[in-house]
């Protein structure tokens, strides 16, 4: 291994990969929780909530994630000083808004695919709306939701790279910093160009994470539907 390789790889793994996983974990949990609640509420036949949730979904699905993250990171602090977030949080919020819209849409489909008799049977057992959904409908819908949730995880992990643009120290950002440091002349770096290897390496790392997960999603899709 050449001299530059080991410290660069260690920096990218310890700082970058950790940052990537941190953003991804936050966004996955946030998207799933918000998305399932919104998606279930979307099946309620009450116009005002439906149109509000529809609007939420169409906005965050319609905007490029980069623009959403820019709005959170640059525009919100201009509105109010309390709405100032560090790059990590801003990226995680942006991905959560986008991801929750995806989950909401998938949840609506999954909940609506549960036969009406299940609702009626649960109602006959004395469950209210909340109990009916929490104990009878959602546990069944969750099975159908699993493949899209795994696909969402893949998309979230890949889209964490967008946090690079606002300077969050995730994998792509640490890669870029490494490339720049290595290109710098002697007192700072060895003045070598390694952009090709480093970015190819970043692609390889993402591939190694994503490929098994997309396989898993395809397998679940075949098994569960």
């Amino acid at each position: 291994m050449p001299d530059w390789f080991e410290p660069t790889a260690r920096y990218m793994a310890e700082e970058g990969l950790k940052g990537t996983l941190r953003i991804a974990a936050f966004a996955l949990v946030g998207s799933t929780l918000i998305g399932i609640v919104l998606g279930t509420l979307l099946t309620v036949r009450y116009r005002p909530t439906r149109s509000l949730i529809r609007l939420y979904i169409e906005i965050w699905r319609g905007l490029p994630i980069l623009v959403t993250i820019f709005i959170i990171f640059f525009a919100l602090p201009a509105v109010s000083a309390q709405l100032e977030f560090d790059p990590f949080t801003a990226a995680a919020i942006g991905l959560t808004l986008w991801g929750s819209a995806q989950v909401a849409e998938a949840t609506r489909g999954a909940v609506e695919s549960i036969p009406r008799e299940q609702h009626e049977a649960a109602a006959a057992l004395g469950f209210g709306w909340v109990g009916r959904h929490a104990y009878v409908i959602l546990p069944q819908a969750l099975r159908r939701l699993l493949p899209p949730l795994v696909s969402l995880l893949v998309n979230i992990i890949q889209n964490t790279t967008i946090a690079q643009v606002i300077g969050a120290a995730e994998l792509l950002e640490t890669a870029e910093r490494s490339v720049e440091r290595l290109t710098a002349p002697p007192p700072i770096g060895p003045a070598e160009v390694h952009a090709f290897e480093i970015y190819a390496g970043v692609m390889a790392v993402f591939f190694l994470i994503s490929f098994p997960l997309t396989r898993l999603a395809a397998y679940l899709e075949r098994r569960l539907v």
Partner: peptide
């Protein structure tokens, strides 16, 4: 298909624009 779908497009752009000039 597998390579492109399993890597972020942003990294692909970086690779094309900043990585390829090296070769």
């Amino acid at each position: 298909v597998e390579i492109i779908r399993n890597t972020p497009i942003l990294v692909q752009i970086f690779f094309l624009f900043f990585g390829l000039p090296q070769v």
